[in-house]
Design a protein around this nucleic acid. Sequence first.
DNA 1: ACCGGGTGTGAACGATCGTTCATGTCGAGC
DNA 2: GCTCGACATGAACGATCGTTCACACCCGGT
Lengths: 206, 206
Amino acid sequence: MNDRSHPVLIVGTGRGNEAAILNAALDAFGAEGFNGASMRDVAKRAGTSLSNLYNYFPSKSDLLAEVLRHANDELSARVRRAVADAGDDAAPRLREAVRAYVGFVVDHQLAMTVSTNEVRYLRGESRERLTAARDATQSLVAEIVADGAADGTFATPHPADAARAILSMVGAIAAWYRPDGRLSRGQLAEQHARYALALLEAPLPH
Amino acid sequence: MNDRSHPVLIVGTGRGNEAAILNAALDAFGAEGFNGASMRDVAKRAGTSLSNLYNYFPSKSDLLAEVLRHANDELSARVRRAVADAGDDAAPRLREAVRAYVGFVVDHQLAMTVSTNEVRYLRGESRERLTAARDATQSLVAEIVADGAADGTFATPHPADAARAILSMVGAIAAWYRPDGRLSRGQLAEQHARYALALLEAPLPH
DNA sequence: ACCGGGTGTGAACGATCGTTCATGTCGAGC
DNA sequence: GCTCGACATGAACGATCGTTCACACCCGGT
């Protein structure tokens, strides 16, 4: 049991069963959807009791919010790290950002799926906090595109929307990717980096 | 009431309240998700009684399956029509296919959202039937890409996956498009047609 | 005149939901 | 040795769920 094809998203948090509960919630929400999964499902997957969940999270919604926060934190950290090591030119910076983004989607496919499909079930402040955090992550890519468009590296006449198109295309990988499929993790990242640069009308190697 | 910014997806079907129920189910599933929306919600939106729904559809799942079938039928018809009038060359054929696809997403944003987000709650035969129908629709675009790659119109080294990337990018419009936003329906279609051709590494007008 | 099927309704069933509560254990700090 | 908070449990609450049922209305064919 617990033999996964991907790294665990949430590691020890200091509190007793918190990480186990969060990972269980990720699995449950991913398998059945937020409304389809019950707190009893989450408890069973986490190997604890139903009522104990409420010692860690005040409600099912808060549990979802915490899961999504951890997912975006990891994605954001990966993209930030990749871009920081990519020099100053827009093209290689974008290439590395896309490769990092694809890497997250492959490594944490379920987290990406839950992030895109279930965020709409959050309400109020937690919804806004998460949307803002996700926008910040996406801005990492959008700024590279804007820089490249400004200095002529990217010739696309619509750079502002192109960033969103690229992120949509990359995020959607989570909906169809299978680890045992035709494409390896590396090939997938390479292909999508090229798609992104082509879409931006950047010069490509032949 | 019933003052919509988009055309109604399902029109009269011959049976009494069938179309009203299907459109109500589309609205309910779109607003709350399949598991979040109740049959009582659907009945209220359709202006009929809870038990009467079961005179038309044997279960909530069958109701979802019918909604998704109508949505894909309309999308498929639009793309087919557009491609049929687009001549023989791959580039204009792809352009018209993407424009038609974007047009559907804009005109039936909720249907597109429900189609992508809720299809996973179908099980068994209805799930397979719908997946097959959706694959057939997507193949309309995939075949154009394959033809264009074969005759050299599209220079991308990865044509098979490029079609999926394009459809992901276009389908994702449903997640963010707002009718009162910066982009008109026509501009959105034009931009995405260009994104698609650029991604395929086709020659572009300057 | 009657009858059967399509269409409609309100009440009800058993199951499951998110959440709360009373209670228990256990180890760290005084 | 005692206390207190963190962690854990099973039972229970009221609400809501999908579905079924018994029963009515209406109308075209006999």
